[in-house]
């Protein structure tokens, strides 16, 4: 009987069920589009599971702002170990929740500005820009004033329900400060409509309803690389372009801080970063080679408010926006 015991134990240990119970599970909360079959999720999951000896599980919910709202609802009881997909306009509010722990990584160097934050680590970024169709608009405007003076119709997103919409609010604020209301008044007859989210606005633009849409400088790259369509471009504005920086953070309540740190470090590795440009259609945060044809030109100047400035400016900027467009 005696020699049977180690054998039995070995059998039991090799049962998949028993094995699964021993594999640690890392739960990453991210926005909805990250985990779709055409998003970065599947490739990231495969690459990380190869090196971590763990099971990577995604939980999703809406977009970046919805993630933060959900974290605030759940508090320390959240099942998530890592949050992936808050952006620079949300980090001050996220920091104030006290739910995050330091990540301990050095800031990546692939960004056009320095971004230091002990709680939130950038993993991709992009410039906001107005995208247009070159076959329809030969001479795009070169700044906000020229756009306001033109007859071009634009679609933008509502800052109250959409992250790009909030980005535009910050863009105008960062570029014009106290004169922001003038710019909005100038734009009011150009704004065809304001949509709840990015996808409705971009859909209206592609359907030919509007001449320009608020999106990213990387949007034309999608059409160029994925659809072999070279007709879309973005208009360079003299004021500079506001940045959206997407960050990851470790939750202080995580029961697997080591594994969470391992994942945060992994977001900076080539295996993760190289997936980003052609799945998330954003710039990678580290200095790795971009896919052929991903970038044709880049803005000369980048604009960014610090997290605290952005939080402070948000309320007044929204009130100005409503007052200037609401007449």
């Amino acid at each position: 009987m005696r020699p049977m015991r180690p054998f039995l134990a070995a059998c039991l240990a090799s049962l998949p069920l028993a094995a699964a119970a021993e594999t640690p599970v890392l739960t990453v909360m991210t926005y909805d589009s990250f985990t779709t079959e055409w998003g970065p999720g599947p490739a990231v999951e495969k690459a990380f599971e190869e090196v971590c000896g763990c099971d990577l599980r995604f939980v999703t919910g809406g977009d970046g702002a919805a993630l933060l709202a959900r974290l605030q609802l759940e508090g320390a009881a959240t099942e998530a170990d890592v949050v992936l997909g808050l952006d620079n306009n949300l980090t001050a509010q996220a920091r104030a929740t006290g739910l995050f722990a330091p990540h301990g990584e050095a800031a990546p160097t692939g960004l056009p500005v320095a971004f230091e934050d002990d709680l939130f680590l950038p993993w991709d970024w992009g410039w906001f820009a107005f995208v247009y169709d070159r076959t329809k608009t030969a001479m795009p405007p070169e700044d906000f004033r020229a756009l306001g003076d033109s007859d071009l119709k634009i679609v933008i997103q509502d800052p109250r329900s959409s992250t790009p919409g909030l980005g535009l609010l910050m863009w105008v604020k960062a570029a014009y400060g106290d004169r922001a209301p003038e710019i909005w008044t100038g734009l009011s007859d150009n704004i065809l409509t304001v949509t709840p989210g990015w996808s409705e606005a971009y859909g209206l633009f592609l359907g030919g309803e509007a001449d320009m849409v608020l999106s990213y400088t990387t949007s034309p790259a999608y059409h160029r690389l994925a659809e072999k369509d070279d007709s879309k471009d973005w208009a360079e504005f003299a004021e500079g372009h506001y940045l959206q920086i997407e960050v990851a953070g470790i939750l202080a309540s995580s029961k697997q801080p080591e594994l969470a740190k391992e994942f945060i470090a992994f977001t900076q590795s080539p295996a993760f970063q190289s997936v980003i440009p052609e799945t998330n259609w954003m710039y990678p945060a580290t200095e790795i080679a971009l896919p052929e044809g991903f970038e044709t030109h880049r803005p000369a100047k980048s604009l960014l408010l610090t997290a605290d400035e952005a939080l402070e400016a948000r309320g007044p900027a929204l009130a100005e926006w409503q007052a200037s467009l609401g007449q």
Binding site: A65, L68, R160, I191, T193, V194, P196, Q322, L325, G326
Partner: peptide, 29 residues
């Protein structure tokens, strides 16, 4: 109504109560 009112309303003039609720939860928590 939220998406219809906003998308076709043409701007912040078309703010409905539902959008204000959205704002309260998402924007200001």
């Amino acid at each position: 109504s939220f998406a219809v009112a906003l998308t076709l309303g043409g701007g912040p003039r078309a703010t409905t109560l539902e959008l204000a609720i959205y704002q309260a939860i998402r924007f200001e928590f």
